[in-house]
Structures are given as structure tokens and as C-alpha cells.
Design a protein around this nucleic acid. Structure first.
Lengths: 138, 138
DNA sequence: CTCTATGCAAATAATTTGCAAGCAC
DNA sequence: GTGCTTGCAAATTATTTGCATAGAG
């Protein structure tokens, strides 16, 4: 059985602050991974005053606890999405307009085993993103 | 048949300068993807004076021509590797020491087709990196 | 000789750090 | 009350841009 977000915070010795509730709310409202600036903008729009630095610190903390996922599209910045309650998945981004779409698939289970045997690493994660051109941009 | 690096530069209307030769030499000496700072350090060590800005500009240009590949490990900076003469492949990085290893495999050919059908994107690339702990760090 | 490429300075953008005050538990 | 959290200011790091000069073809 899976811990709730709040339980996971407690288990990590973290407090449930106004800032954290608000940041999680913004992330949960957005299905797709968003930038730190977009999280912050979402907080401002919700009339929640949270410093940008606090957003950075909490996203890093939530990532350590495994509650959010960092996604990099080679944009010069990271994007974040909530993990909780969602199936493992990947994304594709349009090189034209930057649009992102969820891909509810992952072909890497078997491969991970193989890599562990070949490299002697213990593999505990992977990043997989696709790039291309969306119907509007191509 | 594949164009040589020099021919690819010519085809792109680019000049073969001392800086470019030196940057490509540094990249070719390193089998694994290296950071911009590491490219620059390699130039300095080879007693080639090339400004860091020139390194940035040339890596961007070489990437546009498809001669180098940008790899992101969520480190806050990009890494680059030469494409020329190498088989398509991916990497794994140790979360402890940062060590990178080549993985000479790619399981994504069929999946790409499927994604194109499902999303109506035309897919022209992907990024796939693995993370874990190397034998020394785990 | 012409047009691209480079160096230098400076700007921008993303992210991190230090420290005193605030708030959750 | 105590210690984790936050805000604010400032530092750091990565990357980009403007412009005059240098160099490849």
C-alpha cells in the first residue's frame, strides 16, 4: 500500500507548511511537468505568497522523497511533476512550440536488468524523453 | 555513405578554423560526453587558446549539423560527445561519483513508430539516460 | 576582398547559499 | 520552546549577446 503525500512528508521528518501545500496543489493541478517559474507563477495566481527560493528548496526536497519527478528537455531548466497516484510514464516535446504530451508507456523493465548485469551498476532510475514536431508545427 | 566531419562543415557553409579543429580533437579524445568547461579545459591543456564563448558557439553549431550530441544528466549543465563514426547509444551515470558509462544499445525503434501513430508527432530524436550506483559507490 | 568566426566585456537566466526571523509540532 | 522553514539579499554557475577585430576561403 502506498503512503499518502502527507504521510510521506511525515515519514521524512518534514512539516506540512502552507508553502508545501500550495506547491503540491499547483503541481497536482498541472498534469504535465512544469518549470519552477511556472510553479511560482501558479502560486502567485492562487494568491499564495511563496518565495521563488522556497519553491526551489521544496521541489528539491520533494524530489528526494520521491514525491515529485524532475524532467529535463534540454531547455536549460528543469520541469517537475507529481509522482503520487500516477503511473510511471514518459514524455514527448515538440521542437517547434515546446508542447509536451504524456506517453503512458515504458519499455525499459527488461533492459534495466540487462544493464545491471552488464555494468554491475545498481540501476534505480532513468530519464526518457522524445523529441519531434507536433501536427501544428511540422 | 557518410560525410566526413570536414565535409559536413563545408556542406553547412562553415569554415574549418583552428578553434573548431581543436574542439573536435578534444571531443574525439574523450569517449564519454564531457561538459563545456571540460572541453575548454582540454583546449587549455593542449595549449590552444580558445575562448569559452567560442566553445559554446561551436558546440551549438556542431549540434545543429548533427556532428555532436548533447546529453543531459540533470546536472545543471549539458555534456557533449561526437556523433561521427559512433553507433547510436545511451549512457548510465552513477549518482555517487558521477561516473558515466556508455551503453551500446537502444530499445526504441519500434516504440518510436508507435508513438508517431499515437501522437501524430513526427519523432526525430530521443534522450535516454540511466541512473544508479556503480560498484564502488553502492 | 568578403563574410564568417573569434575574443572580450557584459548581460541574462537558472539555481544556490547565508542568515535572521517565523511557524509547525 | 525547539528545530525545521521561510524570506530576503546576495552569490554562483551556466549560457547568451553585442560589437569590433581577425582570419578562412
Amino acid at each position: 500500500m502506498e503512503l499518502s503525500i502527507i504521510d510521506s512528508l511525515k515519514a521524512g521528518g518534514k512539516k506540512l507548511t502552507k508553502a508545501r501545500k500550495a506547491i503540491l496543489a499547483v503541481l497536482e493541478k498541472n498534469a504535465l511537468p512544469i518549470t519552477v517559474a511556472e510553479v511560482h507563477a501558479g502560486l502567485v495566481k492562487a494568491r499564495t505568497n511563496v518565495d521563488l527560493v522556497t519553491v526551489y528548496r521544496n521541489l528539491a526536497m520533494l524530489q528526494e522523497l520521491g514525491l515529485v519527478n524532475a524532467v529535463g528537455f534540454h531547455e536549460g531548466q528543469m520541469r517537475y511533476e507529481v509522482v503520487h497516484g500516477r503511473a510511471h510514464h514518459h514524455h514527448i516535446q515538440c521542437r517547434g512550440c515546446g508542447k509536451i504530451i504524456d506517453l503512458m508507456l515504458c519499455p525499459l523493465k527488461k533492459l534495466t536488468k540487462l544493464i545491471e548485469e552488464q555494468t554491475r551498476f545498481s540501476v534505480d532510475g532513468h530519464a526518457l524523453e522524445f523529441f519531434g514536431w507536433c501536427p501544428q508545427c511540422r
